[in-house]
Design a binder for these strands. Sequence first.
DNA 1: CTACTTTTGATTGACTATCGACAAAAGTCT
DNA 2: AGACTTTTGTCGATAGTCAATCAAAAGTAG
Lengths: 417, 417
Amino acid sequence: MDEISRGQTNGRAACFTESVLKPTAAPAGSAFPALPGASDIFQLLRDGRPRTRSELAQLTGLARSTVASRVEALRKLGYIAPFGGAASTGGRPPSLFALNPSARVVVGADLGATHALVSLSDLAGEVLVEEREALNIADGPERVLDWLASAIRRLLERAGRAPEDLGAIGIGLPGPVEHETGRPINPPIMPGWDRADVPAMVQRYFNVPVLVDNDVNIMALGEQAAAWPEVRDLMFIKVATGIGAGIISSGQLQRGAQGTAGDLGHVRVPRGGDVLCRCGNTGCLEALAGGPALAAVLAGEGREAETSQDVIDLVRAGDLQAIHVVRQAGRDIGDVVATCVNLVNPSVIAIGGSLAQAGEHLLAGIREVVYRRSLPLATEHLRIVPSVAGQRAGVLGAASMAISHVLSPEAIEAATR
Amino acid sequence: MDEISRGQTNGRAACFTESVLKPTAAPAGSAFPALPGASDIFQLLRDGRPRTRSELAQLTGLARSTVASRVEALRKLGYIAPFGGAASTGGRPPSLFALNPSARVVVGADLGATHALVSLSDLAGEVLVEEREALNIADGPERVLDWLASAIRRLLERAGRAPEDLGAIGIGLPGPVEHETGRPINPPIMPGWDRADVPAMVQRYFNVPVLVDNDVNIMALGEQAAAWPEVRDLMFIKVATGIGAGIISSGQLQRGAQGTAGDLGHVRVPRGGDVLCRCGNTGCLEALAGGPALAAVLAGEGREAETSQDVIDLVRAGDLQAIHVVRQAGRDIGDVVATCVNLVNPSVIAIGGSLAQAGEHLLAGIREVVYRRSLPLATEHLRIVPSVAGQRAGVLGAASMAISHVLSPEAIEAATR
DNA sequence: CTACTTTTGATTGACTATCGACAAAAGTCT
DNA sequence: AGACTTTTGTCGATAGTCAATCAAAAGTAG
């Protein structure tokens, strides 16, 4: 009952409340039949592949006349557009229609601990313009989000798009986030952000749906969007100062009950021993294979190493000791990843984060252990690969999350009304 | 009147696409599907709680007259029935309608390595009759499924129900199963079953949808149905000869890319050392904390112990050594479960399987480690509890899976056509 | 250039699900 | 008993979909 009354957010575009809270209200599955509004046709066109009216009629089972009127409605709204080339099969060549990527734009923001990357993308996920800035997340939500708003304004300007063209804003934050409300929960490295109403704060500047999630989660989305659109079970592992995973299972991002799913960093590893971790426990993976830990080991061997970047530089310079350390970190991570493979059974594991830039050594260590430790059936078709999206995984994922919202059946239905 | 064309869905196991799960706001005022959408009303009644027509109209946003006609259609089909007591609020007392659990029956079958438990349940999940038999799964699919068919016939007879009343059959098997096709894949302890088309073989006897899944997965479903209907993130851990987990995340059973998700048994544990496991690796959890392993340890200490049951008996007899061994097994399992908690972030973990019957000792060991090793945010609201469904978790889950199929929006739509 | 094929667009009438309104039914309260 | 309240069943109006038809458009094959 509470849920339902809360779902009626008539005023502001607090988007996700409706789409997310409802399933919790009716766990049995409050599902509607395949509703043949304008959206079902549109959902077929979302992949960007152009299709003819006849194809759409066949695929949906609707009459040609109905399809024609729907297509016309969507075209008038700008969501789809004619797609030139038409191959004739002997008669009049059919006209093709496809998603019009420039119908709207979305913002993808990856707010890290010390840096921020913000992009403006079209509906195909193509980045139009982007902006990068050294920004301390510890400055607090007010200042950071104020900067974000100004950055968005500049991006819109540079891309020559009006604020009305903005469809949604996706934001990734370096800490646990309650995705339903967009609030960070007890974030260790984000002082001042605890339970801040990020969507509301952003909506003071731009009254569009604002979606917030953990940075590793959006990286998983970004990697999937950029490289594995067909894969429905994917894990993205970020190895940097911290170590975390974004898990996409059955095509759905798994956030867990408190939104803290995918925390690899504080899993105990065999080789962990009594090494103290910043979380207060001992033997955590992060305390052994995180960037600072590797730097500390190398420093102990007389190398000049303080940060993750130093470690990467040493590896690139061919320092054998550094390579050894990174490879061993890969093995330690692989120990935990092997468990993940048995538990989650993904078909692709993408390795990202700054330390993944240290060449193949990290990956080699991970592979070495995973293929030895996991069950044959689970590893038979498993691919462990370096992240394709790389440093852009975050913004791409944030944009992808925003696009999913803008192009969701509900949103399209609402727009065609 | 009761017997309208039942739209015998010849189809086999159905995979639930996500379009089903996406809630769509039913807008009043604009006509949408010209289809007989009786399902949306029915989905509200699936929980078994009786409601009035007006309530349904309010909840769905449909007109009272529309609701009335839908209700009437569903009542004629027998899926819902009037529910006596009506409390007047000053005017004419409303009539209540609720799911009619006896509209149809489903079979839940839990086929173990050496025993089979088959039940006939109504649509509320209530077991009407059941049958248990010592049955060797290694006899192969032909003989086992032939017995299953005869058992189902006997159960129908005993319950006084016609074969036409059978809505679906859910089956749990002790090995990896590709749920979409219902075929076991490389099952280690089921010779002759590899890639057998179980649904087709069962449908030779009963032409109804047949859903097959791994035994631990259906136990998770059963535990959720029996004890935690509101919980959307639940893990069921079976501790017996083998050790495995069924993971329900965001209300959905997580099967993974190859259907082998939740395999805890062959995760390496710190204390594992070089103990050889039947999977060929060393240091597996199962080789350390599985029933046979515990029996072996106790046998080494001079106790009479060969099977899991012997271990349980010793614990129940108050054997201190046995209690110690079981508690240590709990700790070892807890080590892996702690990782699961960080990774999956469930809100309930239910411990089942034969060894869970050895009192609280196993549970205590698990709790001890998990609450120490997992992150505070993830364990704050985490409950680790003994299985409520116990030995019946399997059949209850198999029945639940079958019921979900019979009452799915698609099936109801098809039936009201 | 002509004949043929295929797609497209417009229009029609039939059909059906939904809506809103109204009247009857079945209670409670004074 | 009569007034009031609330639910329930019925009915016409509305609107969106479907199937069919026709004519025009835009190609290909000969």
